[in-house]
Each structure stands twice: as C-alpha cells, then as structure tokens.
Design a protein around this nucleic acid. Sequence first.
DNA 1: TTGCGGACCGAATGAACATTCAATTGAACG
DNA 2: CGTTCAATTGAATGTTCATTCGGTCCGCAA
Lengths: 193, 193
Amino acid sequence: MSETEQLADKKKAIMESTLELIKENGFHGTPMSLVAKEAGVAAGTIYHYFESKERLICELYSYVNRLRIEAVQQGDNPDLPYTERFFSIWLRLFNYYRDNPNVLQFFEQFVNSPYSAKNPEKGYDAFYEKLFRFCRKGIEEGYLRPANPEILGVLAHGSIITTAKIHRYGKIKLGDEELRQIAQIMWDGLSVR
Amino acid sequence: MSETEQLADKKKAIMESTLELIKENGFHGTPMSLVAKEAGVAAGTIYHYFESKERLICELYSYVNRLRIEAVQQGDNPDLPYTERFFSIWLRLFNYYRDNPNVLQFFEQFVNSPYSAKNPEKGYDAFYEKLFRFCRKGIEEGYLRPANPEILGVLAHGSIITTAKIHRYGKIKLGDEELRQIAQIMWDGLSVR
DNA sequence: TTGCGGACCGAATGAACATTCAATTGAACG
DNA sequence: CGTTCAATTGAATGTTCATTCGGTCCGCAA
C-alpha cells in the first residue's frame, strides 16, 4: 500500500464515517469529534483534508453522487429495447437506495438543508443530466409522452426515492411483485398510450 | 381579545416563527434565542409553553400536519365523480405546498431527521389515514389498480411533493398546462386501463 | 387591601462543539 | 545521519446555544 493510497484511505474513512453517523444522528448530532473517533483519526486530521464541516459535507455530496451514477451505469446496456432499459434502470436505482440507506438518508437531508443552497455546483449535476438525456431519448423515439423531459425524469426518480422510503419505513411489504407493480405504474403513466 | 386568546397567540407566534426560521436556516441555524426574537417574546417564555426544543419541533409537526389536512378537506366534495376528485385533491395539495413553502421544507426536514424517529405518534398519522382511505375507495369502485392502497397513496403523494420541489427549485417552468400533465401522468399510472 | 398564582422576562449558567495550533512522527532525499 | 516537510495528533480556545431561575407584572379572589 503506497503512501498516497494510505492518505486516500484516511480521507475516504472520514467521509464514510460521516455518512454513517449522519444517517443515525442527522447533521446535528454528529460532532466532528465523533467523526474523528469513528474514522480512527484525530480531530485535527479532518481539517487537514477538509477546510470545514460544511466543506466536508459538500464534498461528501459530490462523492456520494459519483457513487450513485456508477450504480446506475453499472450494467446499463444502451442497446436494449427502451422499455426494458427503463425497468432495468428503475430497479437498479431502487436497489442502490435500498442497499445503501445511509446514502438515501444523506441525500434527503442534504437537499433540504442550507448546505445544498450554498453548494457551488454548476447547474444540474451529472446524475440529473444523464437522467434527463435518457428521458429525452425516450420522447424522441416515441416511447415517452411528449413533455418536458426534465419533468418526466424528476417524476420517475421521485417514485424511486418514494419507494425506497417505503421500504426503509418498513410498514409496507415490498416484494418483487410490488416493485414490478410500482415500476409498471410509473411506466404506464410516463409512456405514450 | 380575551386573556386565553392572547396566550394562544403567543404559542402560535412561537410556532410560526420556528416554521419560518427553519425554512431559512434549517434545524441547526435556528437558535431558540432567534425564535424568541422573531416571535416577540423572551427566551424563557418559550419554555413556558414547550418543554424543550425537541418538543417544540414535534408539536410543530402535529400542528402543521393538522393544517395540511384542513387544506385538503377544504373544498373536497365526496359526491364528485372519483376521477374529478382525484385531480381536485392532487391540485389542492400541490397548491398548498406551493403557497406554504415553509411547510414543505419543514416536513421534508422533519421526516428525515432523528426527531421523526423519536416522535411518539401512533401508527400512521391522520393525514395518511385519509389518503389511504381515499385510495381504498378508488380500488373498490374499480377506478384504481387492484394494489396495496397504501402504496398507491404514498406514490401519489410523492408525486405531489416532487412537483412542489420542482416548483421551489425554480429551474423548470410549471404552468397550468404542466401541472395538469403531471397529475394526468399519475392518474394514468394509478388507474385501471 | 392583601395575597396568590400564572404569564412573562432576560441575564446567567454550563455544556457541547467547531476549529486552532504547538508539538510529534516518520518518510524521502542529500 | 541531518534536514525538510507533509501528515498527524489531541489538548486548548472561544463561541454558540439550550436551558434555568430569580424576579416582575397583573388579574382575581378573599
């Protein structure tokens, strides 16, 4: 293990710990001292990698967003029929949120926090760009309703988030049957008749 | 103005100020001292009405939730055809979130916070009960897909929240046309073909 | 008039926390 | 070895805040 890899490891450990702790305690309730302890570093070390708590959280957002994009692209085949691709992507994203509840929780907290407003990201981030492109393609090829592709994209993604939250809440059973049903509902709504 | 009404006024003022400040600054970033100043009372007065900040926020949740229910029921006519009722309720709820962005923001922050987990509400709250009942009725009468009404309800509500967030974000134009379109998408997905 | 009690005030308290920094380590290189 | 410098440490600092509490005010009943 090289020097630089070890450094990367520490930075990564800090971010992973933050992610984990925020899931459990929220933005408040996760002091830097706790992050440090969980990551196995000293409090001061965090400030070697991140200017401030705010920067840490914003960088964490970019980091996790990259992971999310990978999760979607992983196994996506642009040559598949559009309909199949829709269901496949829908399910893959859902699975990602289900299997990474701390990511889901972090995103939801972040976008509704003041950090988000301050985040100096330009325009839409890469995730939504890809999502919108996929919807635009669907419209052009006559699969999806002729509508603003950004609206269709956000709606579809919203249904995934909602479903993941249903799962997390745990009161409603979500088997393969139900998941397929939900994806079908969205497809039936978004596609041309 | 009677004595007791004045008292109620102060309590209400505290809750309204909290709602407003949380929209702007989040749960963190809204010290009790600021709440007090905005509400025009002394810091200590808050503790006359609320045991702690946590209780204040949880009571605020119940309070706002009641307002939300009223907003939906206001103008709902159970004798209307089901389809019309669906669109009417969808739009009314959307309008409520659009016109009360602080409520939207508060809900979103609350449900993703540790406060929510600690909140000693029994089962589902009244809002979701009513929502589910409406969906169950739709299924029984053959308008909605035969599926878990709770799933349908949460999905429909999710689409409203998503749409309200689109509006708040402000990057995508949402005219009457688009709103009707979105509600139609959800109706087409949720209803039997 | 007096006394009671609840509403209200706001300065004071103490704890929690983000951030700093002087000191230590250890790897790389001459 | 000696020097350098980045990485790392963790105790100390200063601030911010939730909460407390001794006291004031005022309506009301005795």
